[in-house]
Write a protein that binds this DNA or RNA. Structure first.
Length: 110
DNA sequence: GTTTTGACGGCGG
DNA sequence: TCCGCCGCCAAAA
């Protein structure tokens, strides 16, 4: 188990996020057993554009804010993709975040 | 080679 | 409950 698998794992989990649901960096980090390494998840997501079919737009911070929107082509790209999947976004924040929240450590229930 | 920053979040005061 | 510091570790300056 190389440390580099952490990034791979992040990407793998990100692909498992169901359509119309969102998760958080911390949730993914916790699922990987690195509760305090949420930042690494964020960095891993930055690398996600190198891979295919990774819905990075479904990953937000714990308050439901679209903190990574600036990493997309345009700041509205992320919001638009989420809304396209049925996730309502208002003022760069996910509406009913608790309701659409998808926790890998809970849903995947390792 | 060292220093700073970063798509965050937990934990302490 | 609210505010602030620390940790995590990789990439860029």
């Amino acid at each position: 188990m190389d440390k580099s698998d952490f990034f791979k794992n992040v990407h793998d989990v990100a692909r498992l996020i169901p359509c119309g649901r969102v998760t958080t960096y911390g949730a993914i980090a916790r699922y990987l057993g690195a509760t305090r390494s949420a930042r690494m998840v964020g960095w891993a997501m930055n690398q996600s554009h190198l891979n295919d079919n990774i819905p990075a737009h479904r990953v937000v911070n714990k308050v439901g804010l679209l903190t990574g929107k600036f990493h997309f082509g345009s700041s509205d790209e992320m919001k638009r993709r989420l809304e396209r999947e049925g996730v309502r976004v208002e003022d760069d924040a996910v509406v009913d975040f608790d309701r659409v929240f998808w926790d890998p450590s809970l849903e995947l229930a390792l």
